[in-house]
């Protein structure tokens, strides 16, 4: 395996007395798809949110493309970076949320433009790329629609286009289909499969076991903040060794 794009080491996070993440170690190879499974409250979302510093870790670190996220090394210390430096790091990591979080006062195209304009791309080229991305997620005809005028599946596809617009090297998906009506899950997973095929590195938190089996290169299972199972989809999904993982999978399969 080549040098991994993402290295997570000893990552821990507490909210008050509750330990959400407890010493997570994880590598994600460049161009691969890692699917994170686990019961609710197991720390999956927190793990994802720590990767782009929406949450600060209490211990351990996340490294993307050789750069520690949110901190710089200073001898024996990790000092938190300036807002500006963190903003720059985040612009290379795309994120898709469970609740889409599209900007409701902006049209589909304007949503896709926002990150590019912030990164200093001129309006003309930004619009061209925005249209190309909306076309790629099958929504070329919706560029003037506002989020409220679109279905959940369409909104989530716009959200994926928006995250891709800043040309990220890593995409994070936080339960992207959990807030969708069942008939719309397929269209969103379809876009994600296409994206995986183009060689995008992805970390996906989901309950879609079928997606994990078909697309993932690596499946990891979290339980109470600990990574209890990791391996190929076949190994983890068909012969889980950890008892909690076995119980969870037999419940969802």
């Amino acid at each position: 395996m080549s040098e991994p794009l993402v290295r997570v080491r000893g990552l821990s996070k507490r909210f008050g007395h509750h330990t959400v993440l407890d010493g997570i170690d994880l590598d994600v190879a460049r161009g691969s798809v890692a699917v994170v499974l686990g019961p609710s409250g197991s720390g999956k979302s927190t793990l994802l949110r720590t990767v782009n510093h929406l949450e600060k870790p209490d211990a351990g670190f996340v490294e993307v493309n050789g750069e520690i996220i949110g901190y710089r090394r200073d001898g024996t210390r990790l000092r938190e970076l300036s807002d500006r430096a963190i903003t720059r790091q985040r612009s290379r990591i795309g994120m898709v949320f469970q609740q889409f979080n599209l900007f409701p006062h902006k049209t589909a195209l304007e949503n896709v433009l926002e990150g590019q304009l912030a990164a200093g791309v001129r309006r003309g080229p930004a619009e061209a790329r925005g249209r190309e991305l909306l076309d790629r997620v099958g929504l070329a005809d919706k560029e003037r629609s506002y989020p409220r005028q679109m279905s959940g599946g369409q909104q989530q596809r716009v959200a994926i286009a928006r995250a891709l617009a800043v040309e990220p090297e890593l995409m994070l998906f936080d339960e992207p289909t959990s807030a969708l009506d069942p008939e719309m899950v397929g269209e969103v997973l379809g876009v994600m499969k296409d994206l995986a095929r183009t060689g995008m590195t992805m970390i996906v938190v989901t309950h879609e076991i079928g997606f994990a089996r078909e697309v993932a290169d690596q499946v990891v299972f979290l339980d109470e903040g600990r990574l209890v199972e990791a391996g190929t989809p076949d190994a983890v999904l068909t012969e889980p060794t950890h008892e909690r993982a076995r119980a969870f999978l037999s419940a969802v399969l």
């Binding site: 985040r90 949320f97 979080n101 926002e114």
Partner: peptide, 18 residues
């Protein structure tokens, strides 16, 4: 304004002022 809006904007690499 929902907190998710700020998070989405942060994740896109928008500065605080923006």
């Amino acid at each position: 304004v929902e907190a998710g809006q700020t998070e989405a904007a942060k994740a896109l690499g928008l500065s605080k002022a923006r």
